[in-house]
């Protein structure tokens, strides 16, 4: 259902939600925006030219999360989360899409991560579409888009004085009870705004055939070339909304077992106890990062594991650009094996 939300009514609506929910929304933190809990004086940041610096995956998979607490005499208990029902407001469609992608990893028939599941079930996501798509984002290239609805309970379109609210689930609808319904004409205006945003986004690289190119050139010198200036830090992966690797460590002085964000770009990530490292250099690690998103996710769930948010492009300290890397990959030879 499509509803109309007056912008001046927004602060009241948000504060009203606080009675029942913890509300997280992008607010200013130093020089960037960050999902922080709503307080009576919170100022929503929606004029940022792009999404928050840290992706909202951190609200589901915190940088450090306690799994188990030990007691002094050999006992233990699972960590209690105490998650209050919550709303993530003004999440961008790329980041909401990423949460849905991560669901496929954390919520499976064979194993479901209880900590992830609890947070997901208690969270309502209200998306804010990107009527002015960001400069380094490339969501349409990877098959998603500035008004992509996956992973959202409601989606807002900025129409100047008002937001058009598209409620996408029961939970989403429940937040906006009492708003007036949008007339057909307003819905059409919103559709035009959305279409214009899609049209503004250039194709950053060709995805057709990309998977096969990357797979077939597994041993190509291409990987050496594109990883040459890589420093081997974790910026691209930690700021990536779909990267979810973690490492489990025992913090014995606090008697806690925790999981911390980890990344395939670190040497220690794949280092084995024997001293052997199956990904000994940044060449193999870079190949893993790109292949995971553009080959292995496709093998597993037939979706590209990159939502085009542009964070890795924006913040790479050596200016490595995944769009350029993949454009180059498309020029690789497609080796047909005649022996088969």
């Amino acid at each position: 259902m499509n509803l109309i939300l007056e912008k001046q009514a927004l602060p009241g609506l948000l504060q009203g939600w606080r009675e029942q929910y913890d509300v997280f929304l992008p607010q200013k933190l130093e020089r960037f925006s960050h999902f922080l809990p709503l307080t009576p004086d919170s100022v929503l940041v929606t004029d940022e030219p792009h999404n928050t610096r840290i992706p909202p995956k951190a609200l589901f998979l915190p940088m450090t999360e306690t799994l188990v607490k030990f007691t002094r005499f050999g006992g233990y208990q699972d960590a209690q989360q105490n998650i209050h029902p919550r709303i993530i407001f003004a999440i961008r469609p790329c980041d909401a899409q990423a949460v849905q992608l991560l669901d496929t990893s954390f919520i499976q028939e064979s194993y479901t991560d209880p900590l992830w599941l609890e947070k997901r079930e208690k969270t309502i996501t209200v998306g804010l579409g990107c009527h002015e798509p960001c400069h380094n984002g490339f969501c349409t290239t990877v098959g998603y888009g500035p008004f992509n609805k996956v992973g959202l309970d409601a989606l807002l379109t900025d129409l100047g004085e008002v937001f058009l609210v598209e409620t996408l689930t029961e939970k989403g609808y429940s937040l906006f009870l009492g708003l007036r319904e949008a007339q057909q004409q307003m819905t059409e205006v919103a559709q035009r705004v959305q279409q214009q945003a899609y049209d503004k986004m250039p194709v950053a690289f060709e995805t057709e055939g990309l998977k096969a190119k990357l797979e077939q050139n597994f041993n190509s010198s291409y990987w050496q070339e594109v990883s040459q200036s890589c420093l081997g830090c974790g910026v691209c992966t930690f700021l990536c909304p779909t990267c979810f690797c973690f490492d489990i460590a025992d913090e014995t002085q606090r008697r806690e077992r925790v999981r911390n964000w980890d990344t395939c770009m670190f040497r220690t990530y794949s280092l084995e106890a024997s001293g052997h490292n199956p990904r000994p250099s940044k060449v193999e690690r870079t190949r893993q990062r790109l292949s995971h998103k553009f080959v292995y996710w496709l093998d597993q769930i037939n979706q590209i594991g990159c939502t085009g948010c542009g964070r890795c492009v924006r913040y790479c300290p050596v200016g490595l650009d995944i769009r350029a890397m993949l454009r180059q990959a498309q020029t690789l030879p497609f080796e047909v094996n005649h022996a088969l």
């Binding site: 130093e30 840290i54 420093l231 830090c233 974790g234 910026v235 930690f238 911390n260 964000w261």
Partner: peptide, 24 residues
């Protein structure tokens, strides 16, 4: 407290060349 422990500072530094960093 804003640190995400990505170690970009370490990798960007010419003098941080230890094979195994103390945090690892």
């Amino acid at each position: 407290e804003r640190c995400i422990r990505c170690y970009a500072c370490r990798e960007a530094c010419p003098m941080c060349y230890c094979t195994e960093c103390f945090v690892d």
